[in-house]
Design a protein around this nucleic acid. Structure first.
Lengths: 213, 213
DNA sequence: GTCGAACCCACACCTTGGTATAGTTTCGCA
DNA sequence: TGCGAAACTATACCAAGGTGTGGGTTCGAC
């Protein structure tokens, strides 16, 4: 744990980055400069493919994307990223956008959709929101992942017992349901509490809910 | 309960309505006809104020709103409704909309934002989504309201005990925390379970979560 | 073939939870 | 002033939860 945190610190992998994707080099440069002026790291890419190839999208941050991209459409890229399991917040920019495009992007979860020309402050505000959203998602995802890891250590029976416990069943009811003795239920139940690192039934219920019951 | 349900049935208060708000009478009529053609009740209003005055917004349904309205702006009206505690889904229509307007509406939770001219099917699809959303919100709200009603019957002490129980504390810990005897905690705890209609701690935890812990 | 994991059961013992009965005190309100 | 609700306590008893010890079977991997 300490090693991992050290590594993160030394490579600055925990500070958020703005991934700027635009085919116009002058715009890319202007945006990167803008972010530097507020001490925010920014990396520029000329296309969606370029971003996928070169960027470390596991770092926290957000994507600032021109809707019109060489090759792929920005909106399609948004869906593509989602399919890849990447849930990094996206901010769209556009010079020639229309309303249906905007609606589609927002419905798909975009943080903002900025029509050029926009003020610097607009984009900085959007990035702030996006960073916050990314942080929330990551915290949620981390909590969820931690619980999932614990749940993986459970045997099949322990899973069944846990499900029954969080449904509010008594040991004797669980025993009947699973066709085993009450004493065995207590055994499994104890194992569940230990493995799931739950110190109370209330605790277990909350953790089980993160697993989707 | 039976009486209430009967009343609802006879007045058709449980079928969803589309509240159409547009200042152009011909558009209003065309939209109402469109909805009638798919056996969906629709009511027309010439302004936001007209809607607030005459419509029974407690019925399920959605609002189909022109962004440009006589008097109030459609987006402001959206915020106004939210402040009133009304969470009916809103679909915007516009003849002269722009992207910032669209973004603002979608950020504020609009179901859709349709730029004229749009196809009939687009609006029918949006209404279907909006009806579904309204239904979900109402179900959630009803469940929440029911629990809140139960919680209202709790005394102050019972509330405190409930909070401690769902935190996973043992009776003796709760007793120490509140400065009372363990036996009294058991008494309050029993009252909580009865009043909250919870048949297990797991049950209580879930109900308490609806109350925001 | 033996070793470990998963699963199962029983006895014993203790803790915790839950309920009933019965009584006291405090406080606000009619 | 008196009444009821809320809060509190005690004794007693039983149900449910939890742990430890000890022992059993099955099954798949080494």
């Amino acid at each position: 744990m300490n090693d991992a945190r050290k590594l993160v610190k030394t490579t600055s992998n925990d500070t958020p980055v703005v991934y700027v994707v635009d085919d116009d080099p002058s715009i890319r440069e202007a945006l990167v400069d803008l972010f530097l002026s507020v001490r925010t790291e920014a990396q520029a890419f000329e296309s969606a493919q370029d971003l996928l190839d070169k960027a470390d999208l596991k770092r926290p941050g957000c994507i600032l994307l021109d809707v019109r991209l060489p090759g792929a459409n920005g909106l399609d890229f948004q869906l593509h990223l989602e399919k890849l399991g990447n849930q990094m917040p996206i901010i769209f920019m556009t010079g020639h956008g229309d309303i249906p495009m905007t609606v589609r992007a927002m419905k798909a979860g975009a943080v903002d959709f900025l029509a050029k020309p926009f003020r610097d402050q607009d984009i900085l505000d959007a990035v702030t929101v996006a960073f916050g959203k990314d942080r929330d998602v990551r915290l949620q995802s981390a909590a969820n992942g931690a619980v999932s890891e614990l749940a993986k250590t459970l045997t099949r029976r322990e899973h069944e017992v846990m499900a029954a416990v969080v449904q509010g069943l008594m040991n004797k009811q669980i025993a009947f349901k699973l066709g085993i003795s009450e004493i065995t239920v207590k055994l499994h139940r104890g194992n569940v509490m230990r493995k799931m690192e739950a110190r109370s039934v209330a605790d277990l219920v909350r953790k089980a809910e993160l697993l989707g019951l």
